[in-house]
Design a protein around this nucleic acid. Structure first.
Lengths: 230, 230
DNA sequence: GCCATTAAATCAAACGCTTGTTTAAATCTT
DNA sequence: AAGATTTAAACAAGCGTTTGATTTAATGGC
C-alpha cells in the first residue's frame, strides 16, 4: 500500500543499479528528438532494455526521468560555456582589455564555442534539447538556464560592451551581444540546414576551420574589431 | 459503413461550416505552445467550442487539423519574406548593386524583417511554430519551408555575397549569410529573453527602433558595409 | 408559398487502443 | 535471511476516432 520510495537521485546508490543508468542513457536522445510528450514510457523502457516499472521505481515517474536526463545533459554542456567564462574573467581581471586584446579574446570565444558545438564530440541531441528548452522552457529548465546559459551570455556581453565602449547594462550592449550570440549559435541551431546547403556531411577538420574563420571575421567586424596579426 | 468523406479543403464549401473555421483559429496557438502531441483533440474542440467529432469530420483527423493550421500559419508569414525577396529581385534586376546600394538594401531588409516579426502585428505563436518546425520538422513542413524560408535565405545570400564580393554558391557566402540571418532572427527566437533582460514588456515604438538600429549597425559592419547617408 | 426531400453539419455516446502508474510475486545480491 | 531490484500483469484514465441519431439549411415539385 505504501509506495516504495527509493527515488533519491543524490543519495548513495547501494547497488550497481543497472536499469537506472541504462534509462538515463537511453532517455536523452529520445526526449531530444521528439520531446517529452512524443515518447512513451514503454518506448523508453524498451530502448533501454529494462522493464517499464523501472522508470517509476528509479525516478518516480516519467517526469522524474526527464528531469534527471536534463541534468546529465546540462552537465555535458559545461565544456562549452565554462572555459569561455574563465577566459573572460581572466582577461578582465585587470580592468577592461584594449581593442586588440578584445579582438583576440572574442576570436578565441568564437573558435571555442563553434568547436565544442560542431566538431562531433558533443552528441547532437544535446544542443537539440538545449535549443528546444530555450524557446519552450519546462519548469525544470529554468535553474539550469540561470546556472549555465546566463553566465555565458553575460561573459560575451562584457566583451561586446568593451569593444563597442558601451556600458554592459545598456540596452544597446544587451542587443548587440544578443546579435553576436545569434551569429555564433545559428550554426548549431541550423546545423543540418547548413550541411545540406553545402552538401557536407559533417563539420570535421578543414570544414570546421572555414566555419570558424568566417564566423570570426563577421563577429569581429560587427563589433568594430579586427585581428591585428598579419 | 462507408465513411462520410467531405474533407476536401480546397473544394467550395456549400454551407457556412462554422466549426471548421473555429477549429482552424483555435488550433494554431494551442499547437504552437505545446506541440502536436501536447494538445488533445478534446482540448482543441473545447477551445474552439465545437464537438470533438468535428475534427475528424472536417479535417480527417487531428493530423489533418495540424496540417491545415500549419498552412494558414505559413500564409501569415508571407508578409515577412515576400517583400524582402521582391526588393532583392528589384535591386539585382540590372546586375549586382554597388556598395552603397547594397548597404541601403540590407538596412531595409533588416528593418522590414524585425518590424514584421517584433511589432506585435504577427501573433507570437506564428514565429513560435516556425522556429519549432525549424529544428524539429514534421513532414508537412518541408514543402512550406522550400516555398517560404528558402527563397528568403537565397535572397539574403545574394546581398551578402555581393557585399563581400563572393560567389553566391561559395561556402564562405553560404556561411556568412547564415551568420547574418542568425544576427537578425535571434531577436525573434529569444524574444522573451531579450525582453526580460531589458525589463521591457514589448518591442513597440521607440524600443523597436533601438533594436532595428543596433541590428542594422552590426549586420552592415559584419559584411563590410556602412550607410553612406550622414 | 408551402411542404416533403435531401444532403450537410452537429451531437452525445461509445469504440478500441495507448498512456503512465501500480501491484504483488519472483529474482538477485549481500 | 533480508532488503533491493526486476518482472509480468493489471490498473484507471485519457487518447484519437467512429457511430448513429438528430438538427440545420437549401432544393424542387405542386
Amino acid at each position: 500500500m505504501t509506495a516504495i520510495v527509493p527515488f533519491n537521485p543524490a543519495a548513495a546508490r547501494p547497488r550497481s543499479s543497472d536499469a537506472r543508468e541504462r534509462l538515463l542513457q537511453a532517455a536523452a536522445p529520445l526526449f531530444a528528438s521528439r520531446g517529452f510528450n512524443g515518447v512513451s514510457v514503454r518506448e523508453l523502457a524498451e530502448s533501454a532494455g529494462v522493464n517499464v516499472a523501472a522508470i517509476s521505481y528509479h525516478f518516480g515517474g516519467k517526469a522524474g526521468l526527464y528531469t534527471a536526463s536534463l541534468e546529465v545533459l546540462m552537465e555535458k554542456m559545461r565544456p562549452v560555456g565554462g572555459p569561455v567564462i574563465a577566459m573572460v574573467d581572466q582577461a578582465f581581471k585587470a580592468g577592461a582589455p584594449d581593442g586588440p586584446a578584445c579582438a583576440a579574446l572574442m576570436a578565441s570565444i568564437v573558435r571555442h564555442i563553434l568547436t565544442t558545438l560542431l566538431d562531433g564530440s558533443l552528441p547532437p541531441w544535446v544542443t537539440q534539447t538545449v535549443l528546444r528548452e530555450f524557446q519552450e522552457p519546462t519548469e525544470d529548465y529554468r535553474p539550469m538556464f540561470d546556472e549555465r546559459v546566463l553566465p555565458l551570455q553575460r561573459a560575451i556581453r562584457k566583451v561586446v560592451a568593451a569593444a563597442l565602449e558601451l556600458a554592459p547594462e545598456s540596452p544597446r550592449a544587451v542587443l548587440a551581444s544578443q546579435a553576436v550570440i545569434g551569429q555564433i549559435m545559428v550554426f548549431a541551431a541550423t546545423r543540418h540546414l547548413v550541411l545540406e546547403e553545402l552538401q557536407w556531411t559533417n563539420f570535421s577538420g578543414e570544414r570546421l576551420e572555414i566555419v570558424i574563420e568566417t564566423a570570426q571575421a563577421l563577429v569581429l567586424r560587427s563589433i568594430c574589431l579586427t585581428l591585428s596579426e598579419q
